[in-house]
Amino acid sequence: MIEKIEITQRFNFKRLNRHYECFTIDLVNNNAYYKISERGSGDKFLSEHSLCDDSWIDILVDLRKSMTSAIHAFDDSQKDKFLQDFNDLKLFEDFESEEFTYFEKIELIYSCKVIIYSTDNFEEYDFKNNFPRNWIGFGEMLEELFGFDVLHLNYQRQLVTPLYFDIRKDGVYLEDKLPLKTIEFGHYRTYPYELPNPRLIINFPENRIDGYIDKELTGSDRELILELLERYHVYMWIFDEYHRKSNARDPDDLEGYDWYLEIVFEGDIIWHIFGYNDYPDTYVGLAREVIEITGMDLLEVDTISDGDLELFDKFGNEKINGN
């Protein structure tokens, strides 16, 4: 018999703004609650540069406000219905967990851990991209029982993951390909500590490039940026198949540089990735081409060690060549 279900969700936004929550459904005592003692922090920069997109701020603020100390009680008939519906849902049938830890060298905008405690054992399921096939149905069940959006499905529609979006080498799709709104890239030293400020901001509606480059975004600029994003499979960087170098070797300098890349599409739909001294496999190839185009090391490839560069060349070339 299932006695308890713990749902731990983590949201990572740019410049170290994070939200961490654990919602516990206690099926022995017929109640549910947030573990307030496990509230995530690290939220030191809840502000935004005037040139940057700030779509993430309202999401983060509401996530924090929604996490209260309230106890959500339910009766035996509601519990019985929930357990029956949960069993019928077969949420984790044929499911394969994605292995990850609390601290990852490459982090995505969302991750989740579900632990199901039974009378004699427990089962743990982890995922970032590989959502259980009936995850939306599970969220609807929880909302029916508790009266609020436990799985934050409303905000999942604003976060680029495979739950609602089709992510391809040439872009992100709902029914149609999503138009770009902004791109923001930041790269900064972790020791001695630097504030995580953006290096490059590209605003498509306003036709502007700001940061280390300050210029009008021309039609040829726009076309070139879209070509680079597709050529180096940037939209696919959130998938583990683009983290082979990271999985194969730790960086030489563990106190070197952090970085982030945020792509916001029209409708304030956010794609985000964050790295601690490590990068997706095709990052270096993109960085070198940016140097050729601009004459500037905007992605700071010169901070990467020779040993790491060899592996980036190997894995990156394999990806670009279709292996």
Score class of each variant (00 low, 15 high):
residue 289 E to W: 05
residue 116 I to F: 05
residue 235 Y to Q: 14
residue 2 I to K: 08
residue 73 A to F: 08
residue 270 I to C: 04
residue 176 D to A: 00
residue 198 P to H: 05
residue 71 I to E: 14
residue 104 E to Q: 15
residue 49 H to Y: 05
residue 98 E to Y: 09
residue 58 D to I: 06
residue 6 E to R: 14
residue 93 E to P: 09
residue 311 L to Y: 12
residue 227 E to W: 10
residue 104 E to F: 09
residue 177 K to A: 02
residue 143 E to S: 02
residue 84 Q to V: 06
residue 118 S to K: 12
residue 139 G to V: 13
residue 7 I to R: 10
residue 217 L to W: 13
residue 13 F to I: 13
residue 314 K to N: 02
residue 154 N to D: 15
residue 211 G to E: 15
residue 230 E to D: 09
residue 23 F to P: 10
residue 191 Y to F: 09
residue 319 K to D: 13
residue 302 D to T: 09
residue 69 S to T: 05
residue 239 F to L: 06
residue 63 L to P: 14
residue 161 T to H: 02
residue 211 G to R: 15
residue 255 E to A: 12
residue 249 R to T: 11
residue 317 N to C: 00
residue 277 N to L: 03
residue 46 L to I: 15
residue 138 F to E: 15
residue 223 E to T: 08
residue 170 D to M: 05
residue 20 Y to T: 03
residue 293 I to V: 08
residue 201 I to C: 01
residue 322 G to T: 05
residue 109 I to R: 07
residue 20 Y to A: 00
residue 269 I to G: 00
residue 42 G to E: 11
residue 285 G to N: 15
residue 106 I to Y: 10
residue 48 E to N: 05
residue 263 I to A: 01
residue 232 Y to K: 12
residue 67 M to S: 04
residue 301 V to T: 11
residue 322 G to C: 01
residue 148 F to C: 11
residue 203 N to M: 11
residue 25 I to C: 10
residue 121 N to G: 03
residue 85 D to L: 02
residue 33 Y to L: 06
residue 286 L to N: 08
residue 72 H to T: 09
residue 178 L to K: 00
residue 159 L to D: 11
residue 144 E to Y: 01
residue 217 L to K: 14
residue 167 I to E: 13
residue 220 S to T: 15
residue 174 L to W: 02
residue 12 N to I: 14
residue 265 F to H: 10
residue 122 F to M: 13
residue 83 L to D: 11
residue 49 H to I: 03
residue 55 S to V: 04
residue 152 H to A: 00
residue 279 Y to S: 09
residue 247 N to A: 08
residue 299 L to T: 09
residue 69 S to A: 03
residue 316 G to Q: 09
residue 309 L to H: 10
residue 55 S to Q: 07
residue 130 N to A: 05
residue 173 Y to S: 01
residue 265 F to K: 09
residue 309 L to M: 15
residue 191 Y to V: 08
residue 96 E to R: 08
residue 116 I to D: 14
residue 35 K to E: 12
residue 306 D to C: 03
residue 322 G to V: 03
residue 21 E to F: 03
residue 109 I to H: 05
residue 65 K to M: 13
residue 2 I to M: 06
residue 216 E to Q: 14
residue 152 H to T: 06
residue 50 S to A: 07
residue 130 N to W: 04
residue 278 D to V: 02
residue 115 I to H: 09
residue 99 E to K: 12
residue 243 H to A: 02
residue 261 L to H: 05
residue 222 R to N: 15
residue 230 E to T: 03
residue 64 R to E: 12
residue 281 D to N: 04
residue 241 E to M: 10
residue 67 M to V: 04
residue 29 N to Y: 08
residue 181 K to L: 01
residue 2 I to E: 12
residue 126 D to Y: 02
residue 321 N to I: 04
residue 258 D to W: 10
residue 162 P to W: 00
residue 157 R to H: 05
residue 231 R to V: 06
residue 277 N to S: 06
residue 139 G to H: 09
residue 247 N to G: 08
residue 25 I to Q: 11
residue 94 D to K: 05
residue 58 D to L: 05
residue 271 W to R: 08
residue 121 N to T: 11
residue 104 E to C: 11
residue 153 L to H: 01
residue 21 E to M: 06
